[in-house]
Computed example of a mutant assay.
Amino acid sequence: MGEVINVVVAFAVIVFIFRWLTTSNDSPSERSAADTLGFRPKPVSQDMIDTISNMFPDIPPDNIRYDLLRTGSVELSSNKILERGFLDPPPPAYFTLYPRDANPEPAGRPAPAGGASTTAVKTKPSLIERYNLQERAAQAGPEISEEQIGGKAVWEDSAEKREASLKERKAQMILAARQRMLAQQEKSATS
């Protein structure tokens, strides 16, 4: 009976020493992050978060970071969004390691509607403003036919002429889309 007790005590001491040696190699921040989250977090850069955020602007950045901490891969996280349509929200323990910023939205991205953000929402300029077509839109000249818009472009000799031709086709497409939208609005207003 005494030998059994000696074997059990020796086994417990060996296990204790083994655990002490294996956990002392990790840095304290990694150990606490792994203990807090329940997994060892992978390195995540802001570029990785921005890449997914640009592809899927409706996914919250905290969900993106949490999934990237788990997978460590932009591709795996993107595939998960494409397959499921969402990413799991992080647990409350996540916010002890990665507290929310006072201004979570990156510059240039509007805050979600109904959000808690008190800052003013920056709106994107319309296509008319972006391509400086205000004068042409205000003229409301003859309607642009579908043949003019979708017709084949003529291959120009120089890159400058091709660029000018492309700009003009873009302008025609934008103005035609505006005309269709205004006609649709008038139609819905009369009915």
Rank of each mutant, 00 (worst) to 15 (best):
D88L: 05
E75A: 10
W155D: 02
S29R: 09
E135C: 03
N79D: 03
E147Y: 00
Q179N: 00
S78C: 07
I5T: 10
A159R: 14
E163R: 13
L182H: 03
M173D: 00
V74D: 08
R136V: 02
A34E: 05
R19E: 12
L82H: 10
A12E: 01
Q184I: 14
G85H: 00
R178W: 01
A111Y: 07
T96H: 06
N132A: 12
Q172S: 04
S158F: 00
S165N: 11
T96Y: 04
F18V: 14
A116H: 06
F39Q: 12
A164T: 05
D157Y: 07
M55A: 09
S45K: 12
S73V: 14
P110D: 04
A189V: 09
R130C: 10
A137L: 08
A140Y: 13
R180I: 12
L97P: 08
P90F: 02
G151Y: 01
I64N: 03
P142D: 06
I149N: 06
R180M: 09
S158I: 06
E168S: 08
G38L: 15
R178Y: 00
W155S: 01
V44K: 02
F18C: 05
K170I: 15
L76A: 15
A153S: 06
R19P: 10
K152P: 15
R180L: 14
A189I: 11
I49P: 11
M48K: 03
L68Y: 00
D157S: 10
P125S: 12
R70E: 14
Q148N: 14
M1E: 08
A33Y: 01
V74G: 04
S191C: 12
D35R: 07
E147L: 09
A177P: 13
S126M: 06
T123N: 11
R136Q: 12
M55Q: 05
P90K: 01
E156Y: 00
S27P: 02
G85I: 04
G72E: 09
A102P: 08
S165V: 13
Q179M: 03
D58Q: 04
P41N: 06
E160N: 08
D67V: 02
S45P: 06
P106K: 11
L21A: 06
E168C: 08
V4N: 14
N103K: 12
Q179K: 13
Q179L: 13
G85E: 01
P61C: 11
G115H: 05
F86R: 10
